[in-house]
Design a binder for these strands. Sequence first.
DNA 1: ATATTTTGTAAGTTTAATAAACAAATTAAT
DNA 2: ATTAATTTGTTTATTAAACTTACAAAATAT
Lengths: 391, 391
Amino acid sequence: MVTGDASYIKKINRALIIREILKEGKISRADLSKITALTRATISAQVADLLEEELVVETELEHNPVGRKPIMLSLNAQAGYALGIDLDAGQATFMLSDLTGQPVATDIIPIQAKTYKDIVQLLASSIRRYQSQCAGSRYGMVGIVLAVHGLVSNEEKIKFVPRFQWQDVDLKQDLERAVGTVIHLENNANLSAFAERAYAHHTTDNLLCVTLYSGIGLGMIMDGKFFRGHEGFAGEIGHMIVVPGGEPCACGNRGCWEKYASETSVLRNILAAEPDEASNYEWIGRRIAEGDAQVLDALNQFIYYLSIGLNNVINMYNPDVVVIDSELLRVIPNSLQSIQNQLHSQISHYREITLSGMGRKSCVMGACALAISRFLGVPVLSLPSGDDLAD
Amino acid sequence: MVTGDASYIKKINRALIIREILKEGKISRADLSKITALTRATISAQVADLLEEELVVETELEHNPVGRKPIMLSLNAQAGYALGIDLDAGQATFMLSDLTGQPVATDIIPIQAKTYKDIVQLLASSIRRYQSQCAGSRYGMVGIVLAVHGLVSNEEKIKFVPRFQWQDVDLKQDLERAVGTVIHLENNANLSAFAERAYAHHTTDNLLCVTLYSGIGLGMIMDGKFFRGHEGFAGEIGHMIVVPGGEPCACGNRGCWEKYASETSVLRNILAAEPDEASNYEWIGRRIAEGDAQVLDALNQFIYYLSIGLNNVINMYNPDVVVIDSELLRVIPNSLQSIQNQLHSQISHYREITLSGMGRKSCVMGACALAISRFLGVPVLSLPSGDDLAD
DNA sequence: ATATTTTGTAAGTTTAATAAACAAATTAAT
DNA sequence: ATTAATTTGTTTATTAAACTTACAAAATAT
């Protein structure tokens, strides 16, 4: 049972302060006091702790029109590092980031035709390499988050991963034993949603991220938190039935959305005759430019069913921002506009719908961001995107 | 910005204590200490406040196998009263309850062909009558909650109510001005869900309530809180598209679930020839017993589409408990079993699915419970059902 | 040089928790 | 019948972390 005491208050306010420091990049004690409504004395006391812990550093003095110059505070980005891992079909992507979520190293290793045990060993050895790489810093490796393309329970156990045909596997435990550190598992779509919120859409607390690749995934940040459902399986949107009595699906039903609006299903239709995997998107782009009727038909049907499903998702969740992560939609001219035109219900309420600006790497970046969020104790995180840093 | 201070701690712990007192009915300070993990001293101090405020009363001493007899504490049910109002088509239902959510008075008044202004006046005069009725108690009327069968925004403004054709109406403000007290508006399905959680399903924090009457509504308690979405319009499930290119709907789309699985739509199909409104359900019951093929077909189709929609809802939300509130399903033999048989996806995860034991009155009861929840500052409430009281 | 303004710190107060000790009330044991 | 044991509830002192108030430091404007 969660009860309140003094240390609980301190934690709340500390999280508030760190959040604002991250959001603003650099900020004075006085401004923190104004934003958080905590007194300057309280801010000073908390900041003293953070300075001692080397999580925050005092940077230069800022110029003011009048009065004493404020001392600017920033997060000590190099105090520790976070590791994100995207365990996808055929390859694992690693990203090491500093405490402000900026990538400092990336690596992709192939995992072809490996057994479960091999994969665990492979991941473990990579993790250990990254750990030793940041051992010199104040906190070393502050968190490791692994993205799973499948169902992950609230207890972080893998329920099902289609690509590897894993069922009821305790990858968390197996990895932790192999490496000797705490490792967190999270669904890939949730991590993409987390990344979109943390790096791009700072002003919303209600964001959905629809990922269209081999299947359809839905990551949800609602009210500033992951929306996971009772066991952690919420957002299994690919198996929403949109065509009663339609195509049979491995899940046991017929007419699942995934069969009509995932990239895999569309590509299967289009490329039946042309199985050249490497240049799919370019090939499609060329066909579109040429006006290939068969391809255009297939893509129109894709957008039609995509819009139907999006309509349903929007009606159910009433999100603020919807981000769609799809390589294929980027290739189709005006695809976003076509989708919006088909969301014409009186009932569908959303503010913004966009294509992801991050693409496939949103997943690992979200994993880094989540590791940082856990380490700092800040649930709602705003990190600089690469663009911000250019300032 | 929400910051922590001492009074915030006190509020948290106070809510915890009240919650347990309500849940247990009567409980000693010592047991409260054990359950909440707060020290006995803290409990004593908090309880002293509650006794002074007359929210809690000391009842009889309990017998113990050994040691000093504990003093049992109970909520002072008569310290104040809550009013719930269900503003439905044709009639408004009022329910006055004590602080443990037990009804003490009910009333139904017809509202036929009235203008908006008339309805406001009618509601206001009834509210004033109930207010004077409980003026003698310690806190009088502690809260008024009105159930709206339509879209209510997070700012409690009415976006749309089909039955009255209200659009962008500020009923809260208009009523508050007429009565002179704070009044809260909430969607009817949300209130039904709240009632199911508060009165019946005490052990879950993830409950969905699907109401099938003129339309289809979805009330959601997720993680112990209402799930409202960004603007308050989440759960607009009736306009989920389940038949692409299907029947046109007033919302602007085609093939909305409401057109296939609401009671209205089914009854319209069945009773096209027999427009005797009063005895619909009995009439259908007789036809089922007779084995009327046309009626049975229509009902089977109803359950087919109902199951498709439920499958989608369950996939998206991963609820613990799903409660279906439908008069029609009660008439159909084994309807629940038929639905469960059709939820055969590998992906659909839920623990329990039931028909509502409260039926239509869940809405007003939820309104009373919400008023109490707000007054006591306890978000997750467990109230005795009528059955518990028999103990 | 002085007034004004802003930033940051220091000293004392307040709130509500915890810990430790104790009083009250009961049953079991000698 | 007295004493020990046990459980309940209160009292007193301590602690943590906020707040209030006052003040020193550092800058610009007069």
